[in-house]
Design a protein around this nucleic acid. Sequence first.
DNA 1: CGCGAAGTTGACACGCCTCAACTGCAGTGG
DNA 2: CCACTGCAGTTGAGGCGTGTCAACTTCGCG
Lengths: 220, 220
Amino acid sequence: MPHHNCVSLVPLFSQLTESEQATIESIVHRHHYQAGETIFAAGDPMDALMIVASGQVKVFQLAANGKEQLLYLLTTGDFDGETALFSQANHNSFAQALMPTQICQINRPEFQRLMQKYPTISLNLLNEFGKRLTDLEKRTTKTATTSVESRLADYLVETAAQFESQNFKLPLKKKDLATYLGTTPETISRKLAELEQRGIITQTGSKQIQINDESALELL
Amino acid sequence: MPHHNCVSLVPLFSQLTESEQATIESIVHRHHYQAGETIFAAGDPMDALMIVASGQVKVFQLAANGKEQLLYLLTTGDFDGETALFSQANHNSFAQALMPTQICQINRPEFQRLMQKYPTISLNLLNEFGKRLTDLEKRTTKTATTSVESRLADYLVETAAQFESQNFKLPLKKKDLATYLGTTPETISRKLAELEQRGIITQTGSKQIQINDESALELL
DNA sequence: CGCGAAGTTGACACGCCTCAACTGCAGTGG
DNA sequence: CCACTGCAGTTGAGGCGTGTCAACTTCGCG
């Protein structure tokens, strides 16, 4: 099996020359996970940056009552685990592979050396953090202030934008989509049925969605 | 009126020598705001780092339906506006002074020069971003998965920890506390009354809270 | 002292969660 | 290749938490 190149996938390193990237590639540790496997769990020591080379990873937290909250869905080129690459700390979330997934890791000391050597990396990291903060702030506001219907509509519009198509397949199980939107699978099911009945969307296959009236979705 | 020193207040610059800090202090722009005044609004161009020298600032978003979500409460030494110190962008939130407040600002180009000159600043910034992300992730999970009662209890415990006392004054109006916790003033009022009736807390004065049974609060 | 904002309390409605039963689908092994 | 099993998704009935609206009280400040 050919080794997937991780480093070149990540915007984090994109300003570096090819030979610099190759150097980094050589200090990376590779792992493979099967669908359903746990990559890290809350409480684990956080000592490496994790890059998704291929596959799909869900990052989530568990509340005290056992309820799950999906925080991020990582695909090729995404990374996580940076939050405590500076100070020693433990993970406060879980990461689980949703399909066969290749992961590359760079452990803390090595990553810190890289940041010192190539200051552009910290700038990229800062930018990425900024994006995530902005995104999370928006999500927090949405979940706290609007109805499930709005949030779902919003999600559909955003997802269509990502796929650049009004007809797409949900990248998540409805169960996971529910925890992402802060609701339950039952409610998702009902709201989708309602949107379909109103003619705003059509559910062609399982997870296959066709948006008929985007403007209707946008005004919630 | 004596100029408050901003730079030395902020952990961001704490590794620098006094003379370096003094240099930075000299390029800072000062502003004064009265209670209720808007510091920036969503849509404004974001071109400066804002440091709170004294006073209190609330940072919030407005949802499409007009509802408010309190994101951060900034006090002396806190800063904001960094998210787009790298790429040009607009604010997506509002900032409003809650009392007479001194603000120091460093605009983008100057801040960028500083970061180049003193790499320690970007590391500190990275750390701060990490903390905020972790905090926001936790809050998102809480609001999405637990009841208002839990969230309020949690908030009380955390606030008591900050004040290092079981008897403290809420630093916010209940109205704002409500938007922070993703609920309404009425519900806050009722839940506090309920906690008091259960003997878990006592409300001595307006906004004055006395925690009687912290462990009861902790298990929601 | 008096005004306006903040906070309280009650009645009410409704969105959404819960629980449970049923259906559909995919993977597995006989 | 088809039954078997288990999980994903659907649908229904019911109840609870919390938002809403309105009236009243209290607080804070000029």
